[in-house]
């Protein structure tokens, strides 16, 4: 090292150290805030017309988006191996039974499932609303599906007004339907 060099004023040292520590803490704060959890996935489909689709039904015939025109529709994507879907199935069935005469349409679209498993599922939960099978995943992709279950609420003109990612919150669903003019009786939850 060189010979005697005047040590810098202590103030300058503290300033330098302080700047470094501040920078590190700021970086950490940005990180720490990430612990709050991940933001919900972006849903570009909200507010846009639902994509048109046509799929074979699990029982007989075909299910198409044309069937939904003019009515408020609840479109639910499910798979037989999906645990929350099993909890939802009775809720949707009850919704269908309560709402079909009030102008509500409930349809299910089965994705990522062999057809036999899907039919077993429908039989087990006694689902009477139309269920289609999306064999090649085109409908799922068109709706931007990123998992099951997901439920889309469509208004009478076919625009997606609400998207539920994950298990249904039936209270919000009923409130949404009321906003669209479908008032369900209390017993339908």
């Amino acid at each position: 090292m060189d010979g005697a060099v005047a040590a810098p004023p202590v103030g300058r040292r503290w300033l330098r150290v302080g700047a470094v520590v501040l920078f590190v803490v700021a970086l950490a704060a940005a990180f720490g805030s990430a612990f709050r959890g991940r933001p919900p996935r972006s849903t570009p489909i909200a507010g846009r017309p639902a994509p048109s689709f046509e799929v074979p039904r699990l029982d007989r015939g075909r299910l198409s988006s044309a069937d939904l025109v003019g009515r408020v529709a609840v479109v639910n994507f499910w798979a037989s191996w999906c645990l929350p879907c099993r909890d939802e199935a009775p809720v949707l069935q009850a919704l269908w039974e309560a709402g079909r005469d009030l102008g509500l349409m409930v349809v299910g679209v089965n994705v990522w499932d062999p057809p036999q498993e899907a039919r077993t599922f429908v039989a087990r939960y006694g689902l009477t609303f139309a269920n289609g099978a999306d064999r090649d995943g085109r409908v799922a992709i068109a709706f931007g599906l990123a998992g099951v279950p997901e439920t889309f609420v469509l208004d009478r003109s076919g625009v997606v007004v609400r998207r539920f990612v994950g298990p249904l919150d039936s209270r919000s669903l009923v409130a949404e339907l009321r906003r669209l003019g479908i008032s369900l009786p209390e017993t339908a939850r």
């Binding site: 060099v5 040590a7 810098p8 040292r13 330098r16 150290v17 700047a19 470094v20 520590v21 590190v24």
Partner: peptide, 9 residues
């Protein structure tokens, strides 16, 4: 980094 800054000179 603080220690490094302290001993910088």
């Amino acid at each position: 980094l603080g220690l490094l800054a302290w001993r910088w000179d």
